[in-house]
Simulated scan of single mutants.
Amino acid sequence: MPPPHLVATGIAAREIGVARSTLARWWAQDLVKPALITAGGHARWDVDDLKRQLRERPPAE
Rank of each mutant, 00 (worst) to 15 (best):
W26I: 02
V7G: 05
P3V: 15
L31K: 04
L6M: 05
P34H: 00
G41S: 13
R20M: 08
L23H: 01
P59Y: 07
P3N: 11
I11N: 10
L6V: 06
M1G: 12
L54R: 11
L54G: 13
A28W: 01
D48Y: 05
W45I: 01
R44Y: 07
D49N: 12
L23Y: 00
L6Q: 01
A12H: 10
L23G: 02
I16T: 06
R52I: 06
D49I: 10
P2R: 01
E56S: 14
L54P: 08
I37L: 09
L36K: 06
H42Y: 13
W45S: 04
R14A: 10
G17L: 04
A35N: 02
A8C: 10
S21R: 13
A13W: 01
T9V: 06
R14V: 11
Q53V: 03
I11S: 14
I11Y: 12
L54M: 10
V32D: 02
P34T: 07
T22F: 15
D48S: 15
P58G: 07
A43I: 10
E61S: 14
L36D: 04
P3W: 10
L50S: 02
G40R: 13
I11W: 08
R25E: 08
I37M: 12
P34G: 07
L50Q: 03
R55W: 07
A43W: 04
K33S: 15
T38N: 08
A13R: 01
D48I: 07
L50P: 00
H42Q: 15
E61W: 11
D48W: 11
G17Y: 05
L6G: 00
A8P: 15
G10S: 09
